[in-house]
Design a protein around this nucleic acid. Structure first.
Lengths: 153, 153
DNA sequence: AAAAAATACTTGTAAAAAACAATTAAAAGG
DNA sequence: CCTTTTAATTGTTTTTTACAAGTATTTTTT
């Protein structure tokens, strides 16, 4: 009884939190990168940046994007000079993705923006609170990882 | 130096976390509600459910949705019998939104789904860890609230 | 080694979502 | 009153998304 209310509550909070960060991300894409990338594209850029020469499948799967949609997004990003696509020497079916210097710049802009925002967010907290939050983010990350529900990996 | 890496790291974790919950929500919309609502629509339904007779503007603003996009979404939801729109007696420009019984059912389905998932997520944690996470979600919620950056309110 | 199946990716096409401009209607402020 | 603001809708275009089908390459099977 009490428990139901509790879960409803915490679920609602997480929903709002996630929605807010999502909006933040969308705004960031508009604001910090000169309107050149959409939220979906920013995810792609960050994900390519995080890995080393991932294939299209790798990135598309980890973002749960339809491969055809993904293919077209990459086409756009390539045309804008942010991403390169090069055939895998060992398997000609596969295209390996990488960021161009411009793409890396965009990546840095996005990361800086996020960092500034987190700084602002954490600045209103005590050291203890900050640590609590950081630990929780890690905990949740791991729990999500292990739950295996989502294709993100 | 060390700090930069730290922020980059935690920023990345939050990004992935948020993305994952977003995907989870999208999947939920497909799975738990018989494909009848999109993620955007699920947000609208939950937000209407949370408030008492909000206006279109209220909900659209809090979700950072363009009012014209929102207007059409409401039209769809109304056509599907999930939401009602009734003119404000005090101001004829305003339409007040509410969930129909069917809409409320969908809302409950979504909430149940989220609760089940959270249960699963938390079941792998110790009592202490769970408390940490819950406290952090609250902390982050409040910090976001106070940062005033996002239009969500 | 040849045929069949699977994998990686692209293109055609259609539907849905999103956004800008313009419009209607009502309220608020001089 | 008349002007301005606010709430919402409709017209229109662009963007996003996704299914179906197709090509090319690799792997599996017999």
């Amino acid at each position: 009884m009490e428990d139901t209310v509790f879960w409803e509550d915490i679920g609602e909070m997480i929903r709002v939190l996630v929605k807010r960060f999502g909006i933040l991300n969308a705004n960031c894409c508009d604001t910090c990168c000169g309107e050149e990338v959409s939220p979906a594209q920013s995810h792609i850029i960050l994900e390519i940046g995080k890995r080393s020469c991932p294939s299209m499948q790798d990135v598309a799967k980890c973002l749960c994007m339809d491969i055809t949609t993904f293919s077209r997004q990459i086409k756009t990003l390539e045309a804008r000079g942010l991403v390169t696509k090069s055939p895998d020497p060992g398997d000609k079916r596969i295209n390996l993705l990488a960021l161009t210097p411009e793409g890396t710049q965009v990546r840095n802009k996005i990361n800086n923006h996020m960092r500034e925002y987190l700084n602002l967010l954490f600045s209103g907290m005590t050291e203890f609170e900050r640590d609590t939050v950081v630990r929780s983010v890690k905990l949740l990350s791991e729990a999500l990882e292990n739950s295996g529900i989502c294709c993100f990996r």
